[in-house]
């Protein structure tokens, strides 16, 4: 079911340069993005989000679709409502085993994604839950923050409560539905929204 995007409140965080640092917990825990779904992960990332194929080849070492390891991002199809997790190279035998097209991929055969597309796949407006791990959080996070991501109000409140200092250092100006707001007031407002959706936007300050 499509989330209620139309009634999402908007929180805008103005930064000197869009820095994903204060938002690490949200970026790794999962956020919703609206996009064209029903097509391959590669098409989704390059065409909808403007990430280059060269970057994907060089940096995108580990991919999970619905919790299963993806070897071929050019074949695995992201359907609406799917959960997609992206990571750069990971340590450990487990990290080497889970990486895409790795020499040890047969060691996790039972959780490998079957990349066959379906005849019913149609490219259409939809949404996915995205998770960014490891250094990809810092590298790709700003792209998604600039575009606007959807998170539960309670998750943003947790972030503010846990890393309020970093949040204050990172954001030079905060607005909620275009009205200036300080972090404490924002925290209180979010508390009243519970699990309702908030659209979080990272905006670059006009001085840059």
């Amino acid at each position: 079911m499509m989330p209620d995007f139309d009634h999402a409140r908007e929180v805008r965080c103005v930064m000197e340069g869009i820095d994903a640092g204060p938002f690490t917990s949200i970026l790794q825990g999962g956020f919703i993005v609206r996009c064209r779904t029903g097509r391959t992960i590669e098409d989704l990332l390059t065409q909808d989000f403007g990430i280059t194929g060269e970057y994907l080849e060089r940096r995108l070492s580990t991919v999970f679709l619905e919790g299963q390891c993806v070897d071929d991002i050019g074949a695995a199809v992201a359907r609406t409502g799917a959960t997609l997790a992206l990571s750069s190279a990971m340590p450990g035998l487990a990290g080497a085993t889970l990486r895409r097209k790795g020499a040890l991929s047969s060691m996790r055969g039972s959780i490998t994604h079957n990349e066959n597309s379906r005849p019913t796949d149609v490219v259409a407006d939809g949404f996915i839950t995205l998770k960014l791990f490891n250094v990809l959080s810092g590298e790709l996070g700003p792209i998604f923050l600039a575009r606007g991501i959807y998170v539960k109000a309670s998750e943003l409140a947790d972030l503010l409560a846990m890393r309020g200092g970093a949040f204050r250092r990172g954001c030079t100006r905060l607005t909620m539905d275009d009205r200036p707001v300080d972090p404490e007031t924002l925290l209180n407002s979010l508390g009243g929204l519970g699990s309702g959706l908030v659209r979080l936007v990272g905006a670059r300050s006009a001085s840059r």
């Binding site: 919790g67 299963q68 997790a85 450990g92 487990a94 990290g95 889970l98 996790r108 791990f133 490891n134």
Partner: peptide
């Protein structure tokens, strides 16, 4: 500890 997220995502 960077492994926590991917092992969790993998269901392992």
């Amino acid at each position: 500890n960077v492994l926590t997220n991917i092992l969790n995502e993998a269901g392992g």
